[in-house]
Design a protein around this nucleic acid. Sequence first.
DNA 1: TTGAAAGCGCTAACAA
DNA 2: TTGTTAGCGCTTTCAA
Lengths: 340, 340
Amino acid sequence: MSSPKDITIYDIAKELHISAATVSRGLNDHPAIKKQTREKIHETARRMGYQQNIFASNLRKQKTNTIGVIIPHLNSYFTSTVIAGIEKVANQSGYNLIISQSLESVRKERSNVDTMFNSRVDGLLVSLASDTEGFDHFEFILQKKIPLIFFDRVVEAPNCSSITINNFQAGYSATQHLLDQRCRRIVHVAGNLRSSVYDGRHSGYKQALQDFGLDYDSALVLFPDLRDPDPGRTAHDILAMDTLPDGLFCVSDTQAAAIMSELRRAGVKVPQQIAVVGFNNDLLSRVVEPALTTVYYPGQEMGEVAARTLIRKLNQEEEHQPNNIVIEHRLIERESSLRN
Amino acid sequence: MSSPKDITIYDIAKELHISAATVSRGLNDHPAIKKQTREKIHETARRMGYQQNIFASNLRKQKTNTIGVIIPHLNSYFTSTVIAGIEKVANQSGYNLIISQSLESVRKERSNVDTMFNSRVDGLLVSLASDTEGFDHFEFILQKKIPLIFFDRVVEAPNCSSITINNFQAGYSATQHLLDQRCRRIVHVAGNLRSSVYDGRHSGYKQALQDFGLDYDSALVLFPDLRDPDPGRTAHDILAMDTLPDGLFCVSDTQAAAIMSELRRAGVKVPQQIAVVGFNNDLLSRVVEPALTTVYYPGQEMGEVAARTLIRKLNQEEEHQPNNIVIEHRLIERESSLRN
DNA sequence: TTGAAAGCGCTAACAA
DNA sequence: TTGTTAGCGCTTTCAA
């Protein structure tokens, strides 16, 4: 774990002919310690190369100053901005992070929760795997009174706050945008409807059609496997439809971009024949051709809000009224859907 | 940190009328414990909802079973495959991970190293920020005898193994490929030359030109800020050149894709007028149009090898002969550079 | 303003 | 095969 002999507070105490308790207080800037003593302690600690032993401290304090973060995938622009936001707030408040990915699998998620628990995280920030159903693998976390907050992909749970966008509204306005562009046969490339975000977007799609007086046609809703997406097949499915659709609303930019690229390879004109809307404002949405219309929502802010909410709860700053915080989203119109 | 009263080995011991030491041994499957006792211990532990207190264990064992990983950015396909590889091997061997990003800044990297040290990681896996020069902020890690291994973006350091690809060769063959495609005026969009990977790729580019009998022209080598890339400006710089180049070798796919998209927007034909080669085989390299020729190297494997090497060292399985492991790379030819 | 002392939960040397 | 015991390094109560 480290070199033969680490410096402890006892070494400092001996050096200064004071007690270890005083050294401990001095290092933690306890107000009862004389300023002069405190400074001497700090200086000696620095000189001797002292490093606190967090384990001893944690063991004693019954607190780890660590926040666990469980996310479906590291591998996206959105996720990495969320984490940057969490990290920023956490570091400001003296918390460390343990991050792990569920890779969209409940099984892995379950084991992640266990690991987090064993690491005695003070609190947990979770965005669910897309095939997670139910809440049972979090029950014991709540029983142990470990604060738990969901973000983005959430689940209704007693006593848990959540940070989301209004996915229904986002799906609604994405679809409405396509309708405004004179699309009448709109394919929705959906995600697992067990997942709150995909369910919301799908419902929004449905409602927008209905409000426009169009029938919902389940043949137009596709469910590719998000864990192992094969945009080639999805594109193929679309091309094989009796009547080609004229609009495409995908739950992610990566899906949208990949499918769009396949469609164009097959000679389909975007947006003239098929207008395309993605989701997330991923980096690639600006790079593909045509640039993707997409729904933007601020990952960094979502991360910051989630972390701040958790830390407030950890500090008991307020009665833990669990509440649902909704972050703003925005449709960004680009060439992939503009037909005028 | 958890509910009022956690179950400890003493509770189990009392329940079974045996000693805490026996419980500890039983839980750790110590061979000296009778099978029957061991099973009884495990079962009681499960029944009572026992969870090990890692801090007490770490404190006692002077070992954390944790590996620290410092990387420039979470936000790329390559990085996330590397981490998946590290995670796989680490979990198999019972190690946990602490991950943090330097965001391409030495300052943040330095503080990450400190945090890792304070968390008493058993070993450290590092890919350097692009502006890192020198090695001083790792000195104390080595002094404390914490095994340190670099991967991808490495630095010459005493007693440290490293896992890389041959960036010189990769840069060489990317450039050679462009020369084969009849490019004679090849722009290199480089990275900070302090960084091993970018330096290697740049040298390879240089050497390939020279071997082909072309002069190296520093006006053709651009250095965009990787932390805040503005491909618009880089593209603009290229378009403003007296003679337009006919080839483009970028140190990353994201750069290549973004610049290519700008160039095409300005009416440049790719690959006919300018052939483009990227690096990393990022997800987007297959999605952009035309698909990007790129250099592939296996992130997952790099991660696995790095983790395996570190764990071997931690287990002292072999004399720590520091060595340089080189992973294979491969040029993937796609439409963005094929002019025939 | 400081010190003495107990104990957080676990592991391992030594003893039986 | 199991138990006794000490101690990892720190914080905090109580006392001075």
